[in-house]
């Protein structure tokens, strides 16, 4: 056997040729470095003195330079509350909005996976029309918003039946599901302005409540989409059996369905948690001082401090360490959840 052949041909179907193995492992190690190097660079930068940065790059702690905790001290001790408050905001907003999105989204997904809905197209059009009229009335003619809302609601209830009689077409579960998921296509910036005005009107601007409510809605489509796919795989028998055993729908949902969908809940929950944790645009619109979250704080370093890389590195590390830790802990679930979403579409 020639040397070339030995190098390029695998010994068996399940193994690689020596040359192939070199290429494959080479590629994997190269990409590992692409992934790790930026993280490594932030880590060491957070331990550098300003002189280590400005004098040109130094690469190896203890060899090139002596690590120093001054940046960490500055962020935690000197700034103290100014760091702590956004950090706490981020934690509260991310956790609460994730919990709410998971609860509300799972309930909606379950409902869609088990019951048949047939909303009248006419009612929906009527609702949108009244909504538009109400906005014009409030914004254009200065009608107080609560009067407009009450009038619109009353008109809707009065006219819905009549509208349903004139136009019989109705939608199905698939349409509702698509409608909810399609909210994800909506760029958040389109909704951000009116939401900003809305919260300003009710005096909730720059509060955690505003961020929690908004994040919950923004992440609902993902929860509904992924959880729907998990719920349809749970056999209906179990729920029918439980209903004959005497359980109410609520007891079935919380006692049978949710525990069985746990892998899906973990995967989806983690995904939503990370999205909420990292969210930037809406936080930028809706928070200024009180409810400021970490991404906004980090981004603001740009303007206030210029390139003080050592402080920024500490802040970035503070943001990504918990997430990376969670990811390592639960990554098996995430991959599964993402695949489900992508495959089922």
């Amino acid at each position: 056997m020639s040397v070339l052949k030995r190098l390029t041909e695998p010994k068996s179907l399940d193994s690689m040729s020596p040359l192939g193995a070199v290429l494959v492992y080479g590629g994997l190690i190269l990409w590992s470095m692409v992934v790790l190097f930026p993280l490594y660079w932030i880590a060491i930068t957070s331990l550098k003195l300003p002189i280590h940065v400005s004098a040109g790059p130094v690469y190896l702690p203890f060899v090139d330079f002596l690590p120093d905790l001054h940046a960490w001290r500055y962020i935690f001790v000197d700034l103290g509350n100014d760091t702590l408050r956004p950090y706490l905001n981020s934690i509260v907003v991310a956790l609460v909005s994730t919990a709410l999105a998971m609860l509300i989204g799972s309930m909606a997904a379950y409902s869609l996976s088990r019951l048949e809905f047939a909303p009248r197209l006419a009612s929906i059009l009527l609702f949108l029309l009244l909504g538009a009229v109400m906005i014009v009335a409030v914004a254009g003619f200065g009608v107080p918003w609560w009067i407009a809302a009450v009038v619109a609601l009353a008109l809707f209830l009065l006219l819905a039946r009549a509208a349903g009689r004139t136009m019989r077409a109705s939608l199905g579960n698939g349409d509702i599901l698509f409608w909810i998921i399609s909210q994800r296509i909506l760029p958040p910036v389109v909704a951000a302005l009116p939401i900003y005005v809305m919260f300003q009107t009710v005096g909730l601007l720059d509060t955690r409540t505003a961020l929690i409510a908004t994040y919950t809605t923004v992440n609902l489509p993902i929860v509904v989409w992924l959880m729907y796919d998990f719920f349809v795989t749970i056999p209906k028998d179990l729920e029918e059996s439980a209903s004959l055993d005497g359980a109410s729908r609520f007891a079935i949902f919380f006692g049978i369905v949710l525990p069985l969908a746990r892998p899906g809940l973990v995967a989806t929950g983690l995904l939503v948690l990370i999205l909420a944790w990292n969210e930037y645009l809406l936080a930028l619109f809706l928070s200024s001082a009180n409810a400021q979250t970490m991404p906004v704080l980090v981004a603001a370093q740009n303007a206030t401090r210029g390139p003080q890389w050592w402080y920024m590195s500490v802040l970035i590390l503070l943001m990504i360490l918990p997430v990376i830790f969670l990811t390592l802990l639960l990554q098996r679930f995430i991959a599964k959840g993402m695949l489900l979403g992508a495959v089922k579409g």
Binding site: I104, G105, M107, A108, Y110, S111, L112, R114, L115, F117, L128, G131, A132, I135, A139, I176, I180, Q183, L186, V190, A191, A192, L193, P194, I195, V197, M198, A213, T214, T216, T217, V218, L220, V224, S248, R249, F250, F253
Partner: peptide, 25 residues
């Protein structure tokens, strides 16, 4: 129960997505 389950999601999306969409227009 089925309607009650889907109601919060629909209200949230109407309030924070559809309504703002119209207002934005």
């Amino acid at each position: 129960a089925g309607r009650l389950f889907i109601l919060p999601a629909v209200i949230l999306i109407l309030g924070f997505s559809i309504f703002p969409l119209i207002a934005s227009a």
